[in-house]
Design a protein around this nucleic acid. Structure first.
Lengths: 185, 185
DNA sequence: GGACCTATTTATAATTG
DNA sequence: TCAATTATAAATAGGTC
């Protein structure tokens, strides 16, 4: 702490980071940065935001706002084809996928399929979690009470960070609550 | 210019912006900010990123990296069920949607459906555009040549901004090239 | 491997043209 | 309604522990 060395950030050129370790660190930092920005965008403007990030050769991370039902109805249009819609929807997507599969941009579509796949799985998991607990308040009250050292920094920014973590709760390799602390990966 | 008034930014509280105009302005700025950050994340770390943003009561904006086929294969796993996969895929998604439709978190799922719907449409449109032109180089060479005042600021950041715009090309209400200039909405 | 620390670079809220 | 400006708040690269 006596010998003050160069810290501070350097300007960054938009190019792939070669050093594997730096790349990994940057990925974590910036992924969180993007999610935080997205959260702010959603909260401040009332927009709905979904993000999926696939790190090379690994399970995806995701972010979504809202994860809480309430705010959705405003713009989703609560007037939906009441109940006969179910079969129609199936056909619609079957056809779209069929058409998609016949196209030349296969890799791109494979990717899309992976993303849809993941998104659907995410929602499934979320639903399971929600079903297990009586209410949403209950749902993340548990983890909050167990928080130790994180508590301080959590309150520092308000619920901002917490919400970010809660929203990543369903993610495969995302945030999780383990051994008394929140872990990012 | 004589009376210097307070410009600079103020600190921001994480809350919905009440003033409609400010909210709209902030939405545009921050949406671009999030997309730019996402683009940097993707380029610098080699990750694949997809974002969908639904402004209240309007068509979605999206961002995706890569939109160009090449870089995908690395992590999508080029080993896919060669061709008999088509029907299997259909069934898979049909079942997932069927199951999804029977759950209680209906609004949330409706939203998801909207997002998937949009994502699929996006890809379809992209494919159409690509088919019309011989190559991708050709594809965005046109718009580039027509650029007027934007040219300068575009080159200022390198191709960064351009790529951002190109990636939003398929978006419903996203960027578009009209009357000699790029418009954001 | 993660939390924390700083020097800087970036993003952006407010305001002007 | 937008692009440009500017003052500041935030994000973050590189380092430490």
């Amino acid at each position: 702490m006596s010998t003050r060395l160069i810290k501070g950030r350097k300007s960054v050129r938009l190019a792939k980071i070669e050093n594997q370790n730096n790349r990994q660190v940057t990925f974590s930092k910036r992924r969180n940065g993007v999610f935080k920005k997205a959260n702010e965008l959603a909260v401040m403007t009332g927009a709905e935001v979904g993000i999926i990030v696939f790190p090379p050769g690994s399970k995806p991370y995701s972010f979504g706002h809202p994860n809480v039902d309430e705010t959705i109805d405003k713009y989703v249009g609560e007037e939906r084809p009441p109940s006969p819609s179910s079969p129609g929807i199936d056909d619609k997507y079957v056809q779209m996928f069929r058409k998609a599969n016949s196209m030349t941009l296969n890799t791109q579509l494979n990717t899309l399929q992976d993303q849809l796949d993941f998104a659907l799985n995410l929602k499934s998991k979320l639903k399971e979690k929600n079903k297990k607990l009586e209410s949403q308040q209950e749902w993340f009250k548990g983890p909050i009470e167990k928080m130790n050292y994180t508590e301080a920094s959590m309150l520092k920014e308000g619920l901002e960070d917490l919400l970010l973590k809660v929203k990543n709760y369903g993610t495969e390799r995302g945030y999780g609550y383990e051994n008394g602390k929140w872990k990012a990966e």
